[in-house]
């Protein structure tokens, strides 16, 4: 029984540490990336996985309490809500011309977000 407990504790500790590390990289990306859209990348992907891992680790440690279900619920909410807020913020950023166009290799919207696509399929060049 104690063996099982200590093994679960090791797994939980690894999850917590990896999650915390991913939160640190999210902060680092926020500072280092050059424009709003790149910073959104840092604010979504590593962060969502970080939250998932931390919640998983905490749920393992709190196994048996009713609170562990709440932690998994937080993780699911994070999966559903993070893309929504990221999409809303990045759409506003693009419409307000907060994009550093000199950093773009390709821009298929051509700075006209209101007329996306046009008449032909937009990836025909």
């Amino acid at each position: 029984m104690t063996d099982l407990d200590s093994a679960a504790d090791v797994v939980a500790a690894v999850c917590l540490l990896l999650g915390a590390l991913l939160c640190l990289t999210a902060g680092l990306g926020l500072v280092r990336f050059p424009d709003v859209l790149s910073r959104m990348h840092a604010g979504t992907k590593p962060q969502v996985l970080g939250v998932l891992l931390v919640m998983l680790g905490a749920a393992i440690r709190l196994h048996g309490w009713s609170a562990s279900w709440m932690l998994l619920l937080v993780a699911a909410f994070q999966l559903v809500t993070a893309p929504v807020s990221a999409h809303m913020v990045s759409r506003i950023a693009h419409r307000r011309r907060h994009v550093r166009r000199d950093l773009l290799l390709v821009d298929e919207l051509g700075g006209e977000p209101a007329e996306l696509g046009g008449d032909e399929p937009a990836d025909a060049h």
Partner: peptide, 25 residues
């Protein structure tokens, strides 16, 4: 994989990579 990629992007020293905006049908 993508979290690891973005995490690597945040710490990599050279800044040669560029972004892109694409439209997909």
């Amino acid at each position: 994989v993508s979290s690891a990629q973005v995490a690597w992007e945040t710490v990599r020293p050279d800044r040669n990579r560029r972004g892109a905006i694409v439209a997909v049908q």
